[in-house]
Amino acid sequence: MALFDRFKKNGGDAAKEAAEKVEDAAESASEAVQEAASEVAEEATEAVEAAAPVEAPDPGTYRKVHISPGARGWGNGLDVKPEAGKDLVYSVTGGGIHPVAQRIADLTGGKAFDGFKSKADFHEIAVAVIDCGGTARIGVYPMKGVPTVDIHGASPAGPLMRFINEENFVSGVGVNDITVVDE
């Protein structure tokens, strides 16, 4: 118990670590340990802000989502709904498909796509997800008519700034800023 108390106090990273330990502890199945474990696991979940599970749409169908700017983001938000032949959620981010792109794909029924690994045409892209600090990518996709979601809280800037507007760009977006729109 002392171990879990310590983890609970530390929160944050310690909570994540604790959640891993919790899995082991649960196996050993003492009731008291399990009780403490569930408390710690709850904290761990909060710490990583896990997105609430939502069932994927039926295969071959698509759902509309609203993507809101994050607390430090820019824009009014975008509605995105993939359609057949234009259903790629195009991640142009470091380190593979970004969790925000994956979340948009999961909720809409679109296909998460790594722009650094494979090639796609603009007409196939429903939405682009970038981790741009404000100079280049921020303008390239809006210029090409692709709705663009920036993970970073960048405002329109850079040489292509004139192409960026509230109709095609939103920034500071995290996984919890994406909500399904009932139609």
Partner: peptide, 19 residues
């Protein structure tokens, strides 16, 4: 990404976070 944005403006605080 091998992505680097260089501005030749001599600022100590960059204008944008990617620069």
């Amino acid at each position: 990404l091998g992505h680097l944005v260089v501005k030749f403006n001599g600022l100590t605080e960059t204008e944008l976070p990617g620069e």
